[in-house]
Simulated scan of single mutants.
Amino acid sequence: MSRSSLTRSAAFASIGTALFLVGLKLWAAWKTDSTAMLGSLADTALDLIASIATLVGVWIASQPADRNHRFGHGKAEALAAVFQVMLITLSAGGIALRAITRLIEGGETAAAEEGIAVSVIAILATFALLAWQRHVIRKTESIAIRTDHLHYQSDLFLNMAVIVALVLDQYLGLSLADPLFGLAIAAWLAWGAFRAGGEAIDHLMDHEWPEERRDEFLAVLARHPDIRGVHDLRTRTSGADDFVQFHMAVDPHLSIVEVHDMMDEVEARIEKEFPGVEVLIHPDPNGLVNEQGPAAEELLPERN
Rank of each mutant, 00 (worst) to 15 (best):
M1T: 07
S5R: 15
A10I: 06
A11N: 08
I15D: 06
T17Q: 01
T17G: 02
L19Q: 07
L19V: 14
L19W: 13
V22M: 10
L24N: 06
K25E: 11
W30V: 12
K31H: 13
T32D: 11
T32I: 09
S34Q: 10
S34V: 12
A36V: 07
M37P: 01
L38G: 14
L38S: 14
L41A: 12
T44S: 13
L48T: 08
S62G: 11
P64F: 08
A65Q: 12
A65L: 05
R67F: 14
H69S: 08
H69C: 06
A80P: 01
A81I: 04
A81C: 05
F83Q: 00
F83C: 01
T89W: 10
L90T: 11
A92T: 10
A96I: 02
I100S: 04
I100K: 02
T101S: 08
I104D: 08
I104Y: 09
G106P: 05
E108P: 01
E108F: 07
E108Y: 08
A111R: 01
E113H: 03
E114K: 01
G115Q: 01
I116H: 02
A117W: 07
S119Y: 00
V120I: 15
I121C: 09
I121P: 00
A122Q: 09
I123Y: 06
I123A: 12
L124F: 13
A125H: 07
F127K: 03
Q133A: 06
V136N: 06
I137Q: 07
R138Y: 10
I143S: 02
H149T: 14
H149Q: 13
H151D: 04
Y152H: 15
Y152K: 00
Q153A: 09
Q153T: 15
S154F: 02
F157V: 15
L158E: 05
A161W: 01
I163D: 01
I163N: 02
I163T: 12
V164N: 09
A165C: 12
A165F: 05
L166Q: 03
L172E: 09
G173N: 12
L176K: 10
A177W: 00
D178W: 00
F181I: 07
A184D: 05
W191Q: 05
R195C: 04
A196F: 03
I201R: 10
L204Y: 14
D206Q: 05
E208P: 12
E208H: 12
W209E: 00
R214Q: 13
R214F: 02
L218F: 04
V220H: 03
I227W: 03
R228C: 04
V230E: 07
V230D: 09
T235V: 02
A240T: 13
Q245T: 14
F246E: 01
S255W: 11
I256W: 10
V257S: 15
D261S: 10
M263G: 11
E265I: 05
I270K: 01
E278G: 07
H282P: 03
D284N: 12
D284H: 13
G287I: 01
G287T: 10
N290F: 11
E291Y: 06
E291N: 13
Q292S: 15
P294Y: 11
P294C: 14
A295Y: 08
E302A: 15
R303V: 15
N304Q: 12
